[in-house]
Nucleic acid binder design. Structure first.
Lengths: 344, 344
DNA sequence: AACCAATTTGCCACCGGTGGCAAGTAAATC
DNA sequence: GATTTACTTGCCACCGGTGGCAAATTGGTT
């Protein structure tokens, strides 16, 4: 267990004061070239790395970012996390992951405590936690750096990255309509989430452009899990009159629809078109592969992390200038087809 | 941005020295009851929470654990992460996630640097990084607390949690044999991973008990991804002579087999039995649902984290006593059946 | 009342860096 | 050559806790 070199060791060996070593570490401009190279040489010889705790204590920086979320889909979380980590590792930050309960009364308190306990430099907040205005308010008041991921612009450009789910859902509507579908059902996510209402409204809007209206009893609310996808699909597909197309709020529920259709002997896409939202791994694995909306999750994560680090490093203007909006896109696979009997 | 209370504030208001406050925080025994309650009252009134950086600087503790892995399956990682976080949050630790490249020459250096930069109290290492003996050696030498997750006992009980993949694969072999299968293929994982060789050897051993031998050209190596599952399945299923059953090293590759079988018009399970390994989300979502081996990932994560924290808190004996071995179990679903034409 | 042991509390140095300011040094100006 | 200016470097206090040890308090004995 070899002892770790300290700034004092470096200073002594390089024959300078530790303040100068500190300057070299932090890339201060006012260090002479000869001094700088000498110090750098010693640093690399000793394989010295500054103690982040001491550094943090003295300068109120930890080089730690937090990721706050509540029980998201594993695939979504993984995508986000990879994106965030990519930027982090390039810029010398580490990531602390922190699940929490969105609907808990102590949400705000929990999150603030987490931030100050670990002295995080900033946090990235995922939906649905990102939709909490009280949390955003508290973060702002505490002076913390934060960026939210969402389906709607809840905040100023500096603090948010949004995906235009509404437009994407409208595009799916257009696609369905062009395939000749008129009897269309929608399995929504929980109505308390913005992403759910955005997608539903976008879909309805898109359909109405073709004169198609979503019947109220063909809008069923699930909770974004595979299991509720199955329940909702049963309701739709065991009824007397069946839809010819179902759009689910996410891929998990769409996979549930496929399962039910299969068990009822309904052929997809010949007798029923099914589409999801997300384009996560599941979408391409199931049979038939799902037509879906690709949400640029990774890109959102990259943007969010870049913004966050910019605002931490006191460059708020630059943070505001990073694009804050991304566009999900339609991905057509095998689970959708022209409606049977249609021939235009 | 209200200023955070410090130990000095607490001490002043409670009318004691900060050393005493420190004792209360750390649950030292030698504090009088009246003093203790007085201090505790002030602490909760001020909503005081100690600065972990200062604490860490003084006591070489950070209450930060690390999770080290290399590009694992999203679903596996998510399971592990949930398990680890559950224990962490109960015991007051936070988790820093750290992907790395297993095959990089600088792996050991990267990991050690990560640990000392963030002053982690300990790390949990996932396969395949966990199979690196040089890393384990380096961690041991640096005096770090660590626990490895693996398919084989690479280390002493204190530092490892293993799943008996070999026995589980043998059970799958038994199950296949009892269904009457004799023409059996195996899609292995990369042979440089212990988990791959363990599963393959276990499977072969299990089959040999029934006098069945895996033909060399029916052992194909994939790399545990869906895509290579597809490639391997093509080789097997487009050949003149086809197997009646395929066991894949994981669920992702088994899903690839299902896809190929479907596209070739081969009915599963009527004409071909398919099984995977892991029992992740995908296994139950695909059609037909996969027969597979359930790996108790979450349980392993819980055990590993408990062990790690025990060893950090200087209770090595207790850490050694926590069970270090878990048994994966067979889960029969819809993708396997008695071989066509068999009637025993 | 004096003494002793056990328990509780306080003082001060220190962990390893950074901030502010003063001092030192070299180049530029007159 | 003296003075000004700009640039480098060093000194010391401080961030907010903990460790070691000494001091103070408590209660029980003789």
């Amino acid at each position: 267990m070899q002892k770790q070199a300290t700034i004092n060791d470096v200073a002594r060996i390089a024959g300078v004061s530790k303040r100068t070593v500190s300057r070299v570490i932090n890339g201060s401009l006012s260090v002479g070239d000869t001094t700088r190279t000498r110090v750098e040489k010693v640093i690399s010889e000793l394989n010295y790395s500054p103690n982040t705790q001491a550094r943090g204590l003295a300068s109120s920086r930890s080089y730690l970012l937090g990721l706050i979320y509540d029980n998201p889909d594993a695939l979504y979380l993984d995508d986000v996390q990879r994106g965030v980590l990519e930027v982090c590792s390039n810029l010398g930050y580490e990531l602390v992951v922190h699940p929490c309960r969105y609907r808990s009364e102590t949400l705000v308190q929990d999150c603030l405590r987490f931030m100050q306990r670990s002295k995080l430099d900033g946090v990235i907040v995922l939906p649905p936690v990102s939709e909490s205005e009280t949390l955003a308010q508290a973060l702002k008041e505490s002076g913390s750096a934060y960026v939210r991921l969402s389906s709607v612009a809840l905040d100023d450009a500096k603090h948010i990255v949004v995906s235009d789910d509404r437009a994407a859902a409208a595009e799916m509507a257009r696609y369905f309509a062009q395939l000749g579908h008129e009897h269309i059902a929608f399995i929504s996510g929980p109505q308390r989430y913005k992403s759910s209402t955005e997608r539903m409204e976008g879909f309805q809007l898109g359909l109405s452009a073709y004169g198609i209206k979503l019947q109220p009893d063909w809008i069923i609310e699930g909770n974004n899990t595979y299991e509720t996808g199955i329940e909702c699909a049963r309701q739709l597909l065991q009824a007397e009159e069946k839809p010819t197309a179902i759009f689910a709020n996410n891929d998990q529920m769409a996979a549930g629809v496929l399962k039910v259709a299969h068990s009822l002997g309904i052929k997809v896409p010949e007798q029923l078109s099914v589409a999801g939202f997300d384009d996560n791994m599941l979408a391409s694995r199931v049979i038939p592969a799902l037509t879906t909306i690709k949400r640029p999750v990774r890109q959102m994560a990259l943007l969010a992390t870049s913004k966050l680090i910019m605002s931490i490093e006191n460059n708020d203007k630059a943070a505001s200038n990073v694009a804050a909006k991304v566009a999900p896109t339609l991905v057509v696979r095998e689970s959708t087809a022209r409606v049977a009997g249609s021939n235009d």
